[in-house]
């Protein structure tokens, strides 16, 4: 029989995790239950779904938005503060699974599974989010790019819990774009996901460019070579072509039942190109360099 622990506070949950590092942590169950048929039953479960301290959504003293790891996608979709700070996160949540999945699936669960096709991960990457982890020795914060370490692996220690996600103060002033290419418009696992964000300087040049990509490598990742091409540059047609070329060096897609590597490469490049062209068209600075 599987042991079942349902903590009533975060402190209890941290203790349970310390005492039972071999137990499965269960939130909305949208990943766990899908795989349950093919896996042996866990010896124990720590059920943290709906734990109030994990469902907070608030600005901290420095004005950063802190999203509880237990927030469901539906919760994210309904919160005006999330919409203001991270519209791309709201857009990605809206396209996850379908309404039933959105009601159960959580931000922390998406991080904990760290699937290459986790829908919110490219957004968190593109917004420089930090992850709050709590264990017996206290709290530590990790940039999301350091949190994701590989194919379904994370930096989470066996005695730690994912507690929250923190977005930088400047998130709301970033221009954000989200694009998911899937086989269908709901209940679909992605072929390619792109989240990109940037600031613009007064002269129209791009600054602090961040690009998060999903489904194009073993883990969600930042397109650093592409970011380097775009950083400080004025968006125009030639820049779009250079960025589209650069992104091919950032990714390592595979063939699988949903898509093919060559399609993923071509499409990622085109999504990047299209975003840069969009930036060029929406530039408030007169651009003579096309």
């Amino acid at each position: 029989m599987t042991d079942w622990i349902r903590p009533t506070s975060l402190a209890e949950a941290v203790d349970a995790r310390r005492d039972h590092p071999d137990y499965l942590v269960l939130a909305g169950g949208t990943d766990v239950m899908v795989g349950a048929i093919d896996r042996p039953a866990p010896i124990g479960v720590i059920d943290i779904f709906g734990l109030p301290e994990l469902c907070v959504c608030e600005h901290d003293d420095e004005g950063r938005l802190r999203l509880g790891a237990g927030m469901s996608y539906a919760h994210l979709l309904g919160d005006a503060r999330v919409a203001a700070a991270a519209p791309a996160l709201v857009e990605s949540a809206r396209e996850i699974g379908a309404l039933q999945i959105q009601a159960r699936g959580t931000l922390g669960g998406n991080l904990g599974t760290c699937s290459p096709v986790g829908d919110t991960l490219p957004v968190l990457l593109a917004l420089d989010a930090e992850i709050e982890l709590r264990g017996p020795d206290g709290t530590r914060w990790l940039p999301v790019d350091d949190f994701c370490t590989g194919y379904r692996t994370t930096a989470l220690a066996a005695d730690e819990l994912i507690v929250s996600v923190r977005l930088p103060v400047d998130s709301s002033s970033r221009e954000q774009v989200w694009r998911k290419v899937g086989t269908r418009r709901a209940q679909s696992i992605s072929k390619v996901m792109l989240c990109a964000s940037t600031h613009r300087r007064d002269d129209g040049r791009l600054a602090d460019v961040r690009i998060g990509l999903g489904a194009i490598a073993a883990r969600p990742l930042r397109a650093r070579a592409t970011e380097a091409v775009l950083e400080g540059a004025l968006p125009d047609g030639p820049l779009a072509a250079r960025a589209a070329q650069a992104v091919l060096n950032d990714i390592a897609p595979i063939d699988d039942v949903r898509s093919r590597a060559d399609y993923r490469r071509a499409t990622t490049a085109r999504l990047i190109r299209r975003w840069v062209l969009h930036l060029a068209q929406t530039s408030t600075t007169t651009n003579t360099g096309s």
């Binding site: 379908a98 086989t183 269908r184 418009r185 709901a186 209940q187 679909s188 696992i189 039942v257 949903r258």
Partner: peptide
């Protein structure tokens, strides 16, 4: 994975 259209599709 055997995708049939949802109502959105």
């Amino acid at each position: 994975e055997y995708t049939i259209p949802t109502s959105l599709d």
